[in-house]
């Protein structure tokens, strides 16, 4: 790799995120309409961490979020004509908080929508159609906490389901009985952190399982014997950070891996070196670098995956530990 990838190319990535809204001609843009709200959240969070939070228009963004309100359901869809969905609703809340515009939300209705999605088993569905898994459970717990309404959740029932998803290797799966997967480990660990129930985790075993995710090239994978991928820099690191075991990772090697996945001409970060960048991996790459103490970045809260300063100000900070911020 050329020497230009030995540093995080912040101005280029800022430009890349700015350019994302511009090429709507291609079909791909529309095929991903169901992730539009999430994509804006990923872009905005990455900009915040790179200390360029004003690179996208605040007014346009807030207007877009508000235009995605599904008045029938009482929550947000991913796109103006889409049905309300829990994941889009969490992203909308996170965006509005980062833009200091939470007053644009009918909190009572959103809380009602979220609580209505909890199933008898304790897990949450993503929408009325009923896709269920621990990702949606995390979305619910996170959103309720951000809205200051966690006390309305049936915590025992929620934790009960997470317990069913815990595996013999210390990890967690997407549903009861499913294989441990780093992304699911993150959602379950972060949900338990918000609920102050980290005692449900076999922390030594899980910490070791997470440390084992690092491969000889420095990258992290999501399951044993799978390929490394930049997004796992967040799923794995955030979990380690919440368990206060992030020091077990070889930080220099992982930083090197993330930087090598940068697209050095038009910006953005890919899942691994040489692949096409996207906003998802750009966000999670930058998030991982922040947790690793990369110089010049703002602190990221690994529990809520938002700027740490904002979460602290809201009085929601949990007891996690990132690597100390390095100076250039």
């Amino acid at each position: 790799m050329s020497s230009s990838t030995s540093k995080l190319l912040i101005p280029l990535h800022v430009q890349y995120i700015q350019s994302l809204g511009e090429s709507k001609d291609d079909l791909l843009y529309h095929l991903t309409a169901h992730l539009r709200m999430n994509a804006i959240y990923w872009g905005l969070t990455a900009l915040n961490i790179m200390q360029h939070k004003d690179a996208l228009s605040r007014t346009e963004m807030i207007d877009f979020v508000v235009s995605c309100w599904d008045d029938e359901a009482g929550a947000f869809g991913a796109h103006p004509d889409h049905d309300a969905h829990l994941h889009a609703t969490l992203s909308a809340i996170q965006i509005l908080i980062m833009q200091d515009a939470l007053d644009r939300v009918d909190v009572d209705r959103v809380v009602k929508f979220i609580l209505s999605l909890q199933q008898p088993s304790g897990v949450f569905a993503g929408d009325q159609w009923g896709e269920v898994d621990t990702r949606f459970l995390y979305c619910a717990v996170n959103a309720l906490s951000l809205l200051g309404r966690l006390h309305e959740l049936d915590v025992e029932k929620t934790v009960g389901y997470l317990r069913q998803c815990r595996n013999f290797d210390g990890g967690f799966g997407a549903v009861a009985g499913a294989e441990s997967h780093a992304a699911m480990v993150f959602v379950c660990t972060a949900a338990l952190a918000i609920l102050d129930r980290l005692d449900e985790i076999d922390q030594e075993t899980l910490g070791w399982w997470l440390a084992e995710r690092q491969l000889p090239n420095g990258g992290l994978n999501g399951r044993p014997e799978k390929l490394e991928d930049v997004c796992y820099s967040f799923w794995v690191l955030s979990s380690m950070s919440i368990l206060k075991k992030i020091r077990w990772v070889d930080a220099d090697k992982l930083i090197g891996f993330i930087l090598s996945a940068q697209e050095t001409e038009h910006g953005g970060i890919a899942d691994r070196p040489g692949d096409q960048p996207d906003v998802f991996h750009t966000h999670f790459g930058v998030a991982g670098l922040s947790l690793l103490g990369y110089p010049g970045l703002a602190d990221l809260d690994p529990v809520y995956c938002m700027p740490a300063k904002i979460i602290e100000r809201m009085g929601l900070r949990r007891d996690w530990e990132a690597l100390p911020r390095k100076t250039e």
């Binding site: 709507k24 079909l27 529309h30 539009r36 207007d63 877009f64 796109h79």
Partner: peptide, 14 residues
């Protein structure tokens, strides 16, 4: 489809 109110969600499909 709802015509976006801003640059973040305009429409130009196949």
């Amino acid at each position: 489809q709802y015509q976006g109110v801003d640059a973040l969600a305009p429409i130009n499909y196949s």
